[in-house]
Computed example of a mutant assay.
Amino acid sequence: MLDTYGRSYVQPIIRRTGDFLLKRGLKADHVTVIAFLIGISASFLVYGEKPIWGVIVLWLSGFLDAVDGSMARQSKTSSSWGTVLDVTFDRIVECGIIIALAIRHPDPAILFLLLLLAISIIVTMTVFLTVGAVSQKPSYKSFYYQPGLAERTEGFILFSLMVLFQPHLKFWTIIFLIVELATGLQRLLEARRILKD
């Protein structure tokens, strides 16, 4: 939701950063890989009991993840391969955070909730990507970007809360799970409407 409705407020910063990196000779795919490596390092920081640094690094990777797409559109180098890399790396970064938390908190109840969260993310992303692939609706991205209650920013906020407030990990994981399930249902209902038109 925040990505869809709040992007216009941060887009000037994203665009200026993209311009700066393009002038330094970097390409969108380079920034995609850099964002991925930074994002993966967040899981190691979370595992190493440096939650604040883990969250800072996670958000930096998320910012660069927005910049790479903007760079591709600015330089007219958007590609299907770039989209595949971007979406795949995003999921690996999310999995890294879940795995780091699971290793740090081997309590069966927490592990079960983290497993359910991972499954809910898989289901929600399956709906999102499938609708994007089969929908003919226009989008400024390389495929139809289906809005939802939980988009990338909401995910980062909830992951941050899970990491920063680990004594309450069960609570924040349940909240994240509920938000993901609501988003999946929302996107499924929207898919039924737009694909029947």
Results as ranks from 00 to 15, higher is better:
G132P: 03
S41R: 12
K27C: 15
A182F: 09
Y140V: 13
T153S: 14
I97M: 07
T183N: 10
L181D: 06
F171K: 03
E94I: 08
G96H: 02
G25R: 05
R187E: 06
G132Y: 02
V55I: 07
D3F: 11
L45F: 11
D68Q: 09
T124Q: 11
K76V: 07
T153I: 13
F165A: 02
E190T: 14
D86W: 00
M1Q: 14
R187D: 05
I122G: 07
V134Y: 10
S80Q: 15
G62D: 03
L117D: 01
L161Q: 06
A133L: 06
R104A: 13
F44Q: 10
F143T: 10
A35M: 11
L189H: 12
V87D: 11
F143I: 11
Y144C: 08
M71P: 02
S75H: 09
C95H: 11
P138A: 09
A42E: 01
I52R: 03
A182Q: 10
G25P: 03
I157M: 08
I103Y: 10
T130C: 11
E94M: 07
D197I: 13
T4I: 13
L117R: 02
P147V: 02
F143N: 08
R16S: 10
I121V: 05
L58W: 00
A118M: 07
S142W: 04
L195Y: 13
V127W: 03
T32K: 05
L26D: 05
T77F: 09
W59C: 06
L129I: 14
W53I: 03
V10R: 06
